[in-house]
């Protein structure tokens, strides 16, 4: 008589099928658990991620938002050559200073030597940036030597930080170097 190789009960088959079913159900459950429902709506990503990004807080604002609350600075700043320069670069982001029309914390203000460093970031001839035509550059200390003052002078002693040519033009007017209504750009200082 031949030995019986086959099991009568197909137990081995049933075991394999059971394992497959468990794995399948487990897989589907894991997928439902770990893949968010909005995944793959438009591509291989979560649609909510786009919304999250859109809702990120805007921390830097425009100059207009500063000027709303600073009418005095507004008059000076918009009348000068710095009218396009960002308030927030020289000071700090709006979000740390004003929220919902209310001041929440002090705005940083540079003083003394820090002002010179600040001005020279944009007006430094010595680093030989190319675009002399887009912005006027000066060299230190030659700029002060030309004006025959001590080289310890800080920019804001002669230049109004918010309208750098304001005092220069006023001084020239006072000395009769330019006429009252004259100047290179009388509306701009």
């Amino acid at each position: 008589m031949e030995p019986e190789y086959k099991s009568k009960y197909n137990a081995h088959l049933i075991k394999v099928i059971l394992v497959l079913i468990v794995l399948g159900v487990g897989g589907i459950a894991a997928q439902a658990l770990f893949i968010p429902s909005d995944f793959g709506e438009y591509g291989h990503y979560r649609t909510g991620a786009v919304e999250d990004e859109i809702n990120r807080l805007v921390r830097n604002q425009t100059n207009e938002s500063c000027l709303k609350c600073h009418p005095f600075i507004k008059k000076i700043h918009l009348g000068g050559v710095h009218k396009t320069v960002s308030c927030e670069f020289c000071h700090g982001p709006n979000a740390d200073h004003a929220v919902d029309e209310k001041k929440i914390a002090d705005m940083p203000v540079k003083r003394g030597k820090d002002i010179k460093t600040l001005c020279l970031r944009c007006h430094n001839k010595i680093i030989r940036a190319r675009p002399e035509e887009s912005i006027k550059m000066i060299a230190m200390p030659q700029h002060l030597e030309e004006k025959r003052v001590q080289t310890t002078h800080i920019c804001n002693q002669c230049h109004h930080v918010h309208a750098p040519m304001k005092w220069v033009i006023e001084a020239k007017k006072a000395h009769g170097l330019i006429k009252e209504k004259e100047g290179l750009f009388p509306w701009m200082n």
Binding site: S86, F89, R121, C122, I127, A129, R130, P131, S134
Partner: peptide
């Protein structure tokens, strides 16, 4: 040609 390296 316009960048001045100010880091703003």
């Amino acid at each position: 040609t316009r960048c001045i390296g100010c880091g703003s």
